Structure formats: structure tokens, C-alpha cells
Computed example of a mutant assay.
Amino acid sequence: MATTSDNQLRNPPLSDQARDRLRAAILEGELKPGDKINIERVAETFGISRTPIREALKALETEGLVQIQANRGAIVEPQVWQEIHHRYRMRSLLEGYAAELSCGKRDKKLIAALQDNWAQVKKAGQAKTVSQNSARSIAELNRSFHRMIWVGSGSMTLVRFLEALDLPQSFNDAFYKEQNARQVVCEHHGAIVDAFIEGDTAKASTLMERHVLDSVDLLASQADDHVSNLCC
């Protein structure tokens, strides 16, 4: 069986890099539903040839984010936000279940780790504006918070499904530059930590589901504020 080298992890194929950047542009609203994606312009902007762009678009088509149409090229799926909401709904149910299982274990080390993570997010997110590096640090803390709960569930099946529904790093960086997003995440994480401390599995599940659904609402509101330079 083929294995993935360290070099491949550090330097993924150009088509994968293009896919992630285009996915982020769609999720962030730079590319809007129905927009035609100009392959030549994207290739020029990304500084790569058209071939990996075409491969990236085919991958995004399988994710339901792009349509490739004969004689029209690629467009952003007109119902893309409906698809994104479906994904977040699935993720909310899975994360709620993961939180229920993890909370029920009453793992003191996990609770301490979640408390420490939340304290770091709270401290890092207090500023009105944050740098790109700070936003990335908060995004990484958020990813770690969720992943600790996934792994704490004890179900690797849950972990695999949730990883498949996770968002690209580039989106997370942009998301956490917004003060409102940072505040909401911090408040929600604090409440989830309290539920873990109390050992209230039903509360932990409900709070996590609500947290994930509120996140997609924030994502949608932010997506309205961008203008694309990648379409015609």
C-alpha cells in the first residue's frame, strides 16, 4: 500500500493547494453562488498552470461546491449554501454525539485540557483586532478543542467522519479575524467546558450542536461582505 511521505504532507500537490484555496474562496464568499470561475484568471492569480486548477474544480464538484457545465466551464454551485448548511447540520449531530460520549467519561485530564484551551482562546481573542498569525493561533486552538472532544468520545469512526467535514485552514484564519466570531466561539466553548465539569451529557450535546449551527450562520453572514476577483 502506498504511503504519504513527509515531503508530500509539507508540499501537497498543486491541485490540492488550488482546491483548498478555491474552497476557502467559496466558503468565505469571495466566490458566490452562480459565479462563473475564470480558470485563466485563477491560474494567473495562483501562479500555476490551468491543469491543476481543472483538477481542483473536479474535486470541488464531488463536494457539491462547483458545477462543471459543457460549454460554460465551472460555476459555483447555485445551491452551495444549502449544501453547506446540510454539512453543518450533519456535523452538529455528530459533534453533539461526540460531546455526549466524551462528557460521560468524566475524564479529569480532558476537562483540564479543555479548560486550559478555553482560557487561551479567551485571552487571545480579547483584542479588537488580531494579526493573521494571532488568528491562525486561535483557529488552531479551536481545532484542538473540538478534536480533543472527538477523540475523547472513544470512537475513531466519529473522528474520521468529523475530519471529513472539517473546514480548510485558510477559512479558519479568516473566520477568527472577526471579533464577533471570536467572542461567540469563546462564549460557547466556556459553556461547553462548564457542562463537562458538571458531567451533564445532555447539556454538553445540546450546547455543541448549537455551537456548530451558529458557526455556519456566522460564516454565511461574513460571506456577504466579499467581492471576487476570480470570476468573470
Rank of each mutant, 00 (worst) to 15 (best):
V151D: 03
L101F: 00
R21S: 08
E140Q: 13
T206W: 11
R54D: 01
A124S: 13
S134I: 06
R23I: 08
A195N: 05
L57D: 02
V121S: 04
K32Q: 11
H146D: 09
R41K: 15
D166E: 03
D6S: 11
H146Q: 12
H211N: 11
A223L: 10
D200P: 06
T157R: 11
H86I: 03
K36F: 14
I111T: 13
L101P: 00
A220P: 06
E55S: 15
N172M: 11
G96V: 02
E83V: 15
G29A: 09
K36G: 13
C186T: 13
R10D: 04
R41Y: 12
S215V: 08
D20A: 12
S170D: 14
D107P: 02
E100T: 02
A98I: 00
L22T: 12
Q115V: 01
A59L: 13
L27D: 06
P33W: 03
V130G: 04
K36M: 13
G64C: 06
A43M: 04
R72L: 15
S137P: 00
I192S: 05
E55I: 14
V151Y: 02
K32A: 07
D16T: 14
V193S: 14
A18M: 10
K32W: 12
M1L: 07
K109Y: 07
V216T: 14
L31M: 02
H86F: 04
P52M: 02
Y97Q: 13
S228W: 05
R210G: 15
T129R: 14
I53L: 05
L14D: 00
W81P: 11
D217T: 07
G152Q: 02
S144R: 06
Q179P: 12
R91N: 08
A195E: 03
G47F: 11
A98Q: 01
P12K: 05
A127C: 10
M90P: 01
Q69W: 08
A113Q: 09
D224P: 00
D116W: 07
L110M: 05
E63W: 01
E28F: 10
S153E: 09
